[in-house]
């Protein structure tokens, strides 16, 4: 592999990791507060991509279309929280998990009914489909560049939000200790709603970026990204947002460089390598890289 190829693969891994990170943040945030693994998060991503597809037919500028699509995913996230997760709040973990699987399957099949299972071409703007020459033989796609830029901007925004704002601090406090947070006057419902809004924004953006990356969209497209994001959060330490981001980039780079270095005959096993990595992490460090092992004090 020469320098040009390495540079290209590096940006590619960064880009894939960025999308995983956006999805993983939403998963980790909601898990941190509700102890809920929200598998329906992938369907928020899928619906973001479909919203973009349908809004783009209106001929509006792509940026406007994207903003409208993200607003749509926020509404979907809010409805999901209100209808499925608020009534089950405080239920045993298994009930929560089954609820999220149920919501996921229901949304997938509703999408198949509404949009048909036929894949559709994603309306990526021509401007960002072009190759950008960075010199030294490094040619990268505009899509990758936009993906990395948008993801980093969103993560910087999120960092400012959770460290600098009252609501952000309340969210972290709730993730640390729900009981103490409530007794300190924090309204848990507000915090949960905020987590769903932020998670849905990230998932909606990830849906658009994933559509642009893969080029086509279909109702079951949310499954793989959410599964990878789940692996990323486990690797990084479940519930830890920095851990989720770290795990996502490890996964993104790992996948891309595995494909680049492996003989062609083995590249179709890339997902097998990902899940092998997951098993190894669980064996060696079950709490994840940034997860804490501190036992809960009683």
């Amino acid at each position: 592999m020469n320098f040009g190829q390495f540079g290209q693969q590096f940006v590619n891994g960064l880009s894939l990791g960025s999308i995983y990170a956006l999805v993983a943040i939403g998963l980790a945030m909601i898990f941190g507060i509700l102890r809920l693994i929200n598998f329906a998060h992938g369907e928020v991503l899928m619906l973001g991509a479909f919203a973009t597809y349908f809004y783009a037919r209106s001929g509006l500028p792509f940026l406007v279309v994207a903003v409208l699509a993200v607003l749509t995913t926020v509404v979907i996230g809010l409805v999901m929280e209100r209808v499925a997760y608020r009534p089950t709040r405080g239920a045993p973990d298994v009930a929560l998990l089954l609820t999220s699987l149920g919501v996921s399957i229901a949304l997938q099949n509703a999408a198949v009914l509404a949009f048909s299972a036929q894949p559709r071409k994603f309306p990526t703007p021509r401007l960002i489909e072009q190759q950008v020459d960075l010199g030294a033989g490094v040619q990268i796609s505009g899509t990758n560049l936009v993906t990395v830029g948008v993801a980093l901007a969103l993560m910087a925004g999120l960092t400012l939000f959770v460290t600098r704002t009252q609501l952000g601090v309340s969210m972290r406090a709730t993730a640390e200790n729900v009981t103490a947070a409530q007794l300190m006057g924090i309204n848990i419902t507000t915090v949960i709603v905020a987590a769903f809004v932020i998670g849905s924004v990230m998932a909606g953006v990830a849906g658009i970026l994933w559509g642009a990356r893969v080029g086509r969209i279909e109702p079951l497209m949310g499954f793989i990204p959410v599964l990878k994001a789940f692996v990323a959060t486990v690797i990084g330490g479940f519930g830890s947002i920095p851990g989720a981001v770290l795990g996502a980039y490890i996964l993104g780079f790992g996948e891309i460089f595995l494909v680049a270095w492996l003989p062609d005959a083995l590249t179709s096993y890339r997902d097998a390598f990902v899940f092998t990595a997951l098993i190894l992490v669980l064996l060696v460090r079950p709490q994840g890289i940034l997860g804490s092992t501190e036992p809960e004090k009683i």
Partner: peptide
């Protein structure tokens, strides 16, 4: 700060 709740904050 967490204990200040949402009161007085934005």
């Amino acid at each position: 700060r967490a204990a200040q709740g949402m009161r007085g904050g934005a």
